[in-house]
């Protein structure tokens, strides 16, 4: 019984933390973006606008849930659920602290520390594309379909780059288990110094995978209204919205885990270090959005297939040669 209760409690705790963190990410983004554009941002509801996310959430909850008459009813309802599932499930393998002992039982600070952690992340995050494609198609509107097509092409192209960056990391460490990767960085140096090329590739691909500016073509508001979620309203729209922010949290914490030593750090307990490192990447995301204009579609594709892919392959080849050379000595 206990071996079932403890993982469930861990899962619920992690989802609760994510769901609490996520609204404040929107607040953080709006305030930082406002500061960069010399505005104030939301600062009326509560101290410094801290209750604004709550108000937004309540507003979305009470909005009417519209289903367009032209839509495919089943898939239209299924798609946001897939989005949220893929986003939440990805977080399962990210370790957020060393194993602690609570009343005699060793509790790992991670939902499931799989041997194939990195591969699991690749697999589950690749399911997210279904939410975009099915949602966009099932809406039965041309803007949604355009957004869905763009999303599918973009996510599939950049997944490749993400994979190449991750494989380089796995080659360097020699294990796909995320806790081992953290432990090795704790004992040695952060992987960002060993794999700087993979780090940059990962950041670009992560930006594209989460459909964030400057890669927000699937939901480009100036041309496609809102892309694949144009027709969604109320909580169904909110599910897409939550999924996008949780995806940002996942790629940020994965970046922290793989390249910046994850939860390891002096003085503070593990989770605080992970959150701190995660915030650095979240700030970077907002910073990019405030700085860079949206890419044109052909630029997006050329960047992925003509520039990043050869760089990634070259990086992989060089890494492989070095790994073999060092293990031979």
């Amino acid at each position: 019984m206990q071996d079932l209760v403890v993982p469930m409690l861990r899962t619920i705790a992690v989802i609760a933390v994510l769901m609490t963190l996520m609204p404040y990410m929107t607040w953080f983004e709006r305030r930082v973006l406002a500061a960069m554009q010399v505005r104030h941002g939301p600062n009326r509801v509560g101290w410094q606008g801290l209750l604004q996310p709550l108000a937004d959430g309540l507003k979305l909850l009470f909005k009417e849930d519209l289903t367009p008459s032209n839509s495919d009813r089943w898939l239209y309802r299924l798609a946001p659920a897939i989005a949220l599932f893929a986003a939440l499930a990805s977080f399962a393998v990210i370790p957020f602290g060393p194993t602690v002992e609570i009343q005699g039982t060793m509790v790992p600070m991670c939902i499931a520390d799989l041997d194939i952690g990195v591969l699991y992340l690749l697999g589950v995050s690749s399911l997210g594309v279904y939410a975009l494609v099915l949602g966009g198609w099932a809406s039965g509107s041309k803007y949604s379909l355009m957004g869905a097509l763009r999303a599918a092409a973009q996510v599939v192209s950049y997944e490749l780059i993400l994979g190449l960056a991750l494989i380089a990391v796995v080659l360097t460490v020699g294990d796909t288990k995320l806790s081992t990767i953290v432990q090795q960085q704790h004992d040695g140096v952060w992987l960002v110094f060993l794999q700087p090329v993979a780090f940059v590739l990962y950041l670009i691909a992560a930006c594209a995978e989460t459909n964030r500016a400057p890669f927000d073509l699937p939901e480009a508001e100036t041309e496609l209204v809102a892309g694949y979620h144009t027709e969604y309203s109320g909580m169904r729209f909110a599910m897409y919205f939550i999924a996008e922010y949780i995806n940002m949290l996942v790629v940020s914490s994965l970046a922290a885990t793989l390249f910046l030593g994850g939860f390891s750090g002096p003085f503070w307990p593990g989770p605080w270090w992970l959150i701190l490192k995660l915030m650095v990447f979240m700030f970077l995301f907002v910073w990019l959005r405030a700085t860079l204009p949206r890419l044109r579609y052909d630029q997006l594709m050329r960047l992925s297939w003509n520039k990043l892919l050869p760089i990634g392959l070259l990086n992989l080849a060089v890494t492989a040669v070095i790994v073999v050379y060092r293990s031979g000595k």
Binding site: L114, I116, L119, L122, G123, L127, V129, Y130, V133
Partner: peptide, 25 residues
Amino acid sequence: EFVAISQLIIYSGAIVVLFLFVVLL
């Protein structure tokens, strides 16, 4: 585990996306 994840990445993540793409178009 490895076979399961390969199934997820290759079939669910890539091949069925392609099928769906063609069907939708």
